[in-house]
Amino acid sequence: MNIFRLAGDMTHLISVLVLLLKIYATKSCSGISLKTQELYAMVFLARYLDLFSDFISLYNTVMKLVFIGSSLAIVWCMRYHRVVRRSYDRELDTFRYWILVGACFTLALVLHEKFSFQEVFWAFSIYLEAVAILPQLVLLQRSGNVDNLTGQYVFFLGAYRAFYILNWIYRYLTEPRFTRWISCVSGLVQTALYADFFYYYFISWKNNAKLQLPA
């Protein structure tokens, strides 16, 4: 564990807490893409198949349970909670993400560290996470103004993988046999997808204005 990875995990945890706060405090999920939440639930379920087979540390196990539990809870809330579900932007959240899921799974069948059930699903989760934010970014552009908590949620979600890139550089420099090309390349693609959001987020922060993404 290094400071970059810890910062990344904490930033990721903060993004989940901000989203839970938004939904719980405002009893609304307007501006949040259910499709992105469902993709993230798939990412965690596919990535943490080793949850019960490989014990790495208490921290690792607890964080995996938190991410799986929170992503499923948010999907459940947005689908079935009788108050929250009413504020879901159903007609704006129309990204056909099964294309992404199919493409990522096909890529994982071709490109993986080892051809085993667990490894293929792990590579699938890495590729899927890289594009999981797309429905959310599309929804933000369509829904125009973005409320603060939603903007902060997306910001922290994008920032966490940027910390992981620093972690991979650090591990590459300090650990002799460290190579994680699948994670690194996907992580770069993932962070790059946030580039324009980060730009408009910074502009809105500098001008102390509402976050506006161009349509």
């Binding site: 990875r5 995990d9 990721h12 080793d50 490989d54 690792n60 991410f67 792990w122 972690n167």
Partner: peptide, 10 residues
Amino acid sequence: REQPHGHDEL
């Protein structure tokens, strides 16, 4: 600590 299939990250 490297894991059998090397995934010690979240």
